[in-house]
Design a binder for these strands. Sequence first.
DNA 1: CGGGTTTGACCGGCGC
DNA 2: GCGCCGGTCAAACCCG
Length: 102
Amino acid sequence: MDQGGYRLELPEDGYEWRKYGQKFIKNIGKMRSYFKCQRSSCSAKKRAEWSTSEPNNLKVVYKGVHNHALPASESGSSQLGTSNANQYDLLTQVFGDRSTAH
DNA sequence: CGGGTTTGACCGGCGC
DNA sequence: GCGCCGGTCAAACCCG
């Protein structure tokens, strides 16, 4: 499980993922989880990265593209897949300090 | 019973 | 050429 006793809150993007690995990257001093899309021929992968001391600072990196429709549509969470181009090869989303300004 | 999840080990690539 | 790091796969276990 995740260390620290904190429950990492992975942002639901509407896709199904299966965790296939977890490693601590000392290079950046952060933990990294590896997720793969569970669809037919979808080679899309997701990478979750967060600091061990601050699990609230979550960074999600989407690698690859989905060649299938979303298995589930989110009900007002993110605007991903709307007018957003779903043919990106790499997407990086950073979560955490949304109250940086205020 | 199946699927999903977790941990460890292994391999490949790159740097020096 | 070797060492190190990152990434992936496999096995076992647990829960529904």
